[in-house]
Write a protein that binds this DNA or RNA. Structure first.
Lengths: 216, 216, 216, 216
DNA sequence: TATGAATGAGATTTCATTCAT
DNA sequence: AATGAATGAAATCTCATTCAT
């Protein structure tokens, strides 16, 4: 009454038990969003899933929004980690294939919640920035790759590397989404092959024969 | 959403004024979803945007779900209608450019509401089918175009026409959606040019010189 | 989620019924505060007292704070109205007596809620200003009266009119509070007589004999 | 406030450190009430201000009510102690000035918390009695002073000593409280001078010339 | 003694929907 | 047909208090 009272921001859990509960709430929240959608994502459902009471929620999170932010941060981090291409073969086409394969795996498995947030427009400015950062990570990586291929005379120099990265990245991203929404089952490996060949042809990169011969 | 309803089903508006109000509610609802997300999509916001009272809503719609269904139907219809390429020049590349230009010009928004519905998990079976139909419309059209070009010896015969249509269609759809989410302003016509060239190169279609010379 | 949604401010009631409910909620709210204190002042108690449901509250008020503001505004207005001294006799002492009598009556009866708000420190800036305005109304009136008496040679010219008004006004205000908080019953009319004589003597105004002879 | 309690009654702190924490909690509680009102007065805020954990609170206090009781007791004691006029000059007017100066100097704050408790209706019978005792202490002292002056022929014998003490005591108390609520800065010493002169004139006590000449 | 995680009753607020006028 | 007051289930959030460690 007459005074906006903001809960003091909960501090990081001090004990092992506290950290366990904190992490369990984040995991349960994400699972609930992915399985039951926004409508199922209530504080009651989340706390019940973990087996604690209403009030415990606010021991760890300022608000439901706060939990959502932390769920998204965790998912974004996992997705980027999973997408890194650790070994760097000389063959540029092999790199494209590997990047696409990893992206599809990461996006499909780990990031349903990211798509839901993105398109659900449950976006405060923090979340919006976070999602843009994730996209930028992928775009920048592709842009740099294209630029290098152009410099090496292996890709069409007329293409704007950034626009091209946005478009081709969008292709892969959208396919990742469609793949588990479409009713028809798509062969993932075959899709990786097609995406890679389309990507390579689009930028004028020559595709090694072996791959072309055997499209899965 | 999804509450039990007991009120009588509204009939189609009898008067011109009635139709105007009915259509205005659909338009306002869509605008609100696009601009403020699900959280802003309340009966109060919709009726207030149109300037009628709470009760009037139920003169025209059975429920909020009913309005949502009609918003999606309208958006889907508009999207398909606006995407048809009426004049059919012989030049396949010109057809691709024109299709992309139309899609980008008018369809970002419609695509946005459709995707929000899709990922917002506000999906009864009716809506799910409707969305699949819309996608199928585009995929089928592209697939058929690719197949014809392959038959004419103008496109790479090794590509699976359906997978290719899904991937390249996804590229355009994704770009259409993110184009106004990105922080950086993108030149639409330049993007149309890039999308078209990437699409053509990807399937092995030769791009006329005039275009290649002048990439915006 | 992810978006602060502020209820659109409720508009003024459009119908007579609406106005009745609106006013009844304000009246009930005030009664509850005065009789049961802050702890009893819940939206549930207020709506139940009026015989409407939870939700109806928010048809008329943005929040509980909003209701409190309106209760205080109404109480302040009533208090000032009740304190006005309509007839203006020439006799300055008679004016003082009348002002004190009215103030005691108004403060005691009408304004328990003002005291509770004031000392309860349930104060947003709006409320604080409002209360200061009420006090200023009384101080300014007394100050002007003292200044006139000084000009007429009827009051001690060495006194600062404003400080004097604040002090003597405080005396009357505080007595009004004590009167219904003290366990011992005080004769109001006798108190009015004393306050008036103390006030007059304090500023050096001569008190007519008739009053002095008969102190209640 | 007023919840059912089942925990064991804490005993008096045994160690010096214990006493320090105990006293710090009382001091912090009072400060919070005065500065942030009832809304800010939470066990969390109090313990955090002192730098101990939630649970520690219940090492020293049975409940929040218990703390409040002890805050009020401490404030009342401090107020009375600080108000005593130790040296007793013969000059009655000098005594009045000194009493007012002391009251204003130290008592604004203590008076504030006492009045907040009074009007906040957080009153069990213990607290109510305590507050009445504090007031009675002041009223009785002033009453006795007035009576003596009347007996000595130095004050108006027509005044009821008790009513007069209540009224003039109220004046000083009220000024002490509002002095730091008003937007305008008031010179405390000038106010002491005015209060003393008003008090003296009101009871008909002659004011020595030196004071009258130099009103700050 | 001190800690801080856990509790849960209770408060506020939202909003799709109904219905008397 | 239109209005807008009324409904109430359901959601979020608060905070004094307990208790295992």
């Amino acid at each position: 009454m007459g005074r906006t009272r903001t809960n003091p921001a909960p501090t990081a859990p001090a004990t092992a038990k506290g950290r366990r509960t904190h992490d369990a709430l984040i995991a349960a929240g994400r699972e609930i969003i992915e399985e039951h959608g926004w409508a199922g994502f209530t504080t009651e459902a989340v706390t019940q899933a973990v087996g604690v009471s209403y009030g415990t929620f606010y021991t760890y999170f300022e608000s439901k929004d706060d939990l959502l932010r932390k769920i998204v941060q965790a998912a974004a981090g996992q997705m980027i980690t999973a997408s890194l291409v650790p070994d760097t073969p000389d063959d540029p086409y092999a790199r494209i294939v590997e990047a696409n394969r990893r992206f599809l795996a990461a996006k499909g498995k780990a990031a349903k919640v990211l798509r839901m947030v993105e398109h659900g427009a449950y976006l405060d400015d923090n979340l919006r920035s976070l999602l843009l950062e994730v996209r930028e990570f992928y775009v920048a990586r592709s842009e740099e790759g294209i630029r290098r291929l152009q410099a090496a005379g292996l890709a069409n120099p007329d293409l704007d590397p950034r626009l091209t990265a946005i478009a081709l990245g969008g292709m892969v991203e959208q396919v990742a989404v469609i793949i588990d929404e479409l009713r028809e089952p798509l062969d993932t490996e075959k899709m990786v092959d097609h995406l890679s060949r389309l990507w390579a042809s689009a930028i004028g990169l020559r595709i090694p024969d072996t791959k072309t011969q055997n499209p899965a």
